[in-house]
């Protein structure tokens, strides 16, 4: 019995942009260090409405002397996140995790390209940090394409600048950076990255990932983290599935929580 459900304490919960929140949760020191792409299931201790816990990707992890802390970057989209947004410093949350698999970083590719849409920046920031630290990639070897609908929806930019020098920001309305879809901005540069020397890490809305899939056309190694409604977070309820090609190329439903949330983009079957 390795895993516990942890009681975390909200150390900060700030609205960093309209509807976007950054929550810092202090946890006991035996909370396992998360790998980039992993998530937690979070709920308010003792509260049964909303009924289900919410899956949120881990944005950062820091270890202190007697405890550790994670940060969660989230957008208020419904009842669950609305209630999370109302939590004040000192509130207790129940956290289970870290859950799911992670982005794989044990490859020797020259170019690292990140493509994030909106809140998709969260796992990719943790990944960029891990790559700098563990795989000793220099900030110059990594290129980040970050897109959002408007400037108001661009979050986490300042922290990202420290990790990644080659940074392209785009918005749908041009209110910040280029006026373009993030996938189009990447497509303009695609010739810079040869498929054999490049790995692409992506996270963002379905439309972005699907468009990326078309652009890459199966030629690039691309790992993408997906989001789905979840009930259990550990693979038991089989509620959060995505259609993929299995080992023999046949369609199968894989669980985003336990088989993902990171998948090879080429595996995903689009409707």
């Amino acid at each position: 019995m390795a895993k516990d459900i942890y009681i975390g304490e909200v150390a900060a919960n700030e609205e960093i942009q309209i509807d976007y929140f950054l929550m810092k949760v202090t946890l006991p020191s035996d909370f396992t260090e998360p790998l980039p792409g992993q998530f937690v299931m979070i709920r308010i201790a003792g509260l049964h409405d909303p009924f289900l816990s919410r899956p949120i990707s881990i944005y950062s992890y820091t270890r202190g002397k007697s405890n550790c802390a994670i940060e969660l970057l989230y957008r208020v989209v419904g009842k669950g996140t609305q209630i999370l947004a109302g939590l004040i410093k000192g509130s207790q949350v129940e956290i289970s995790g870290p859950l799911g698999g992670s982005y794989s970083i044990d490859h020797q590719k020259k170019n690292i390209v990140f493509i994030a849409g909106g809140i998709g920046i969260a796992p990719l920031s943790l990944l960029a940090e891990a790559l700098c630290r563990k795989a000793s990639y220099s900030a110059a070897a990594m290129t980040f394409y970050l897109g959002a609908q408007t400037a108001d929806a661009v979050v986490g930019l300042n922290r990202l600048r420290k990790l990644c020098y080659n940074l392209t920001v785009c918005t749908d309305d041009g209110s910040l950076g280029q006026k373009a879809l993030v996938t189009k901005a990447f497509q303009k540069d695609i010739k810079k990255y040869s498929p054999s020397d490049t790995v692409i890490y992506a996270c963002g809305p379905k439309a972005m990932v699907q468009s990326l899939s078309k652009i890459l056309d199966g030629k690039y190694l691309c790992q993408v983290s997906l989001e789905e409604r979840m009930a259990c977070g550990v693979g038991a309820c089989v509620g959060c599935v995505v259609a993929v090609k299995d080992g023999q190329g046949k369609p199968a439903y894989k669980r985003v929580c336990a088989d993902g949330p990171v998948f090879d983009l080429q595996q995903i079957i689009w409707e």
């Binding site: 959060c240 369609p251 439903y253």
Partner: peptide
Amino acid sequence: LGNPPPRIMETAG
């Protein structure tokens, strides 16, 4: 194979 997603939805209680 099971049914296509979405497969779950939270409701009151």
